[in-house]
Every structure is written in structure tokens, then in C-alpha cells.
């Protein structure tokens, strides 16, 4: 994926300070529609802070965010959502006690009017939920099935399908695979691939190099609040990525003692 068209988000020299702690020290990144941009980094590298500035949770201390060419100042997550930037958080995506269709339309409930009052349009919500889930390859017992009965991978998929259905142009996935089994991870990665093909930009945060290489078009590594550079698919090997994430030589020593299993 090369820059034949304009980036949908440009982040320029983003800095974020929390008191005396510098969480981000000037990170720049471009994201294009239809690409899966993997953001890698070890714990504490600043991945979460960075995506939170992108999704409107944090305001950057310095730097510029341009969305579709226009400078943007998100006051809160709702601004980002209405602009088309949706974020799926690892464990805060869904409410397990509620049904799939109630979750799917949470915050965007369809209404119908009866006798001058507006009511939740369950028929519409249920049929849309069932068809969207079928597209993603999830077979529900019924739209009233509680999310708690779904597996972790299925929950992530429901959250992704929800964001796509409500018109996300940029989908930020915060470690969607980190708590999942092998099969479920494969399902989520397949979902990411489907979303990307719909010309939506995907920002995929992970610290698993293999998951990133499976679907990523470009890879940006963060370390200690800075980018260590962005690589195209095919220009970088898994080992190089792994080394960059861990800050190089320490891992080489570790890897020696662990027999190359990390």
C-alpha cells in the first residue's frame, strides 16, 4: 500500500506530557484508507497514549492532527466518533449482560415513533444485527443472545462489525488479539482483512509480531515515546521487528538463553 492517495489521518510531531512524565516525545504517523497499519511496541512504549490522542480521549500537548486534510481538535471521544474514528478496546468493547443486538446499537439506538412517543425499534435492530453477524461469520442463536455467551474473539468481531456498520472510516483496534486463543485470533485477523478491503483504515495495536505480519501493510514501532520508523510489508523480517520493539540487544541476550523461542 503506497501513498497513491491522500492519508486520512496525519499525526505530526505529537507530544503528550502527563505532569513531568513525557509519554510521547514527538510521534509522526500517516494512515491511509484501506491499509492495515500496525502499531507495535512493548508495554509502556506509548502505544495506548498515542491511540488515545487519535481517538479524542487525550489532547496532545504539542503537535497537529489532520483528518482528511483538515486540522482537528477533538474535545472528547464523541467528536472523534462522529468524525468517523472508532476505537475498539480490548476488554471494554461489549457489555456481557446485554444481548448482542442491544450491544450492537448501544449509543445509536434505532427508534420508531408510535403515538408521538419514540420507542426502541427492536425488529430493525435484531434483523440488522443478525445480517451483520452473518457477514462476519458468526452464527448467533438469536439476536437476544447475551454477549456473555460469546467467545472473546466473537466479542471483538461484534465490536468491529458495530464500528463498521456505523460508518467508521478509521478503525483503531487496541490489542484485539492479546487475550485470545489461536483459532479466535485467526478469526479476528480475518475480520481485520475484511474491514480493510472495504477501504477502511485499520490501526492495529499489538505486541505480537506474528499477528502484525499476518495482516499488516505497514508497521510502525514505538519505543519510549518515539517512533523507531515505519516499514512497508516485505521490507522487514519478523526478527528485525522483534528487535526494534524490545530495544535491541537485551533481547538478543535473552533469546540466546531461551533458545530462540521468544
Amino acid at each position: 500500500m503506497t501513498s497513491t492517495h491522500a492519508p486520512i489521518i496525519e499525526m505530526r510531531d505529537i507530544e503528550k506530557h502527563f505532569g513531568s512524565v513525557i509519554a510521547l516525545a514527538g510521534v509522526s504517523l500517516d494512515i491511509y484508507p484501506g491499509e492495515c497499519h500496525c502499531l507495535l511496541g512493548d508495554n509502556g512504549a506509548g502505544k495506548s497514549t498515542f491511540i488515545k490522542t487519535m481517538s479524542g480521549v487525550h489532547k496532545p500537548t504539542k503537535g497537529e492532527i489532520r483528518f482528511e486534510g483538515q486540522p482537528m481538535h477533538f474535545e472528547d471521544p464523541r467528536d472523534a466518533i462522529s468524525a468517523g474514528i472508532a476505537t475498539v478496546y480490548q476488554d471494554l468493547a461489549m457489555i456481557p449482560l446485554m444481548s448482542v443486538s442491544r450491544n450492537f446499537f448501544m449509543g445509536n439506538e434505532p427508534v420508531k415513533r408510535r403515538l408521538g412517543l419514540s420507542f426502541f425499534d427492536h425488529d430493525h435492530a435484531n434483523s440488522v444485527t443478525m445480517s451483520e453477524m452473518r457477514k462476519m461469520g458468526i452464527n448467533l442463536r438469536g439476536p437476544d443472545q447475551a454477549v456473555g455467551t460469546l467467545s472473546g474473539g466473537e466479542r471483538q468481531t461484534v465490536a468491529i462489525a458495530r464500528a463498521v456498520h456505523f460508518g467508521a472510516k478509521v478503525l483503531i483496534l487496541d490489542e484485539p488479539t492479546s487475550a485470545l486463543g489461536v483459532r479466535q485470533t485467526a478469526n479476528v485477523l480475518a475480520t481485520i482483512d475484511k474491514v480493510r478491503k472495504a477501504d477502511i483504515a485499520v490501526v492495529f495495536i499489538t505486541h505480537n509480531v506474528r499477528h502484525a505480519l499476518a495482516v499488516g501493510d505497514r508497521f510502525t514501532v514505538l519505543n519510549r515515546g518515539k517512533t523507531l520508523g515505519t516499514a512497508q510489508r516485505g521490507q522487514i523480517t519478523p526478527d528485525e521487528l522483534q528487535d526494534m520493539m524490545a530495544g535491541g540487544q537485551e533481547l538478543v541476550e535473552l533469546e540466546g538463553s531461551l533458545g530462540g523461542t521468544v
Binding site: 471521544p77 464523541r78 466518533i81 476505537t87 478496546y89 471494554l92 468493547a93 461489549m94 457489555i95 456481557p96 449482560l97 446485554m98 442491544r102 446499537f105 448501544m106 449509543g107 445509536n108 439506538e109 427508534v111 419514540s118 420507542f119 426502541f120 427492536h122
Partner: peptide, 24 residues
């Protein structure tokens, strides 16, 4: 059970943070 607000009641009690993230 039949209104948008009802869905927000469930959401607020089920997981307030998740509900806030989607704009409830």
C-alpha cells in the same frame, strides 16, 4: 425494555466505561 433510554439504563449499569466509549 422498549425505549432507547432503557438501553442506556442497562448499559450504564452493565459497564459504565464501555457505555461512555460509545457515547451513552
Amino acid at each position: 425494555t422498549r425505549t432507547k433510554f432503557g438501553n442506556w439504563i442497562f448499559a450504564a449499569g452493565g459497564d459504565a466505561q464501555a457505555a461512555r466509549y460509545v457515547g451513552v
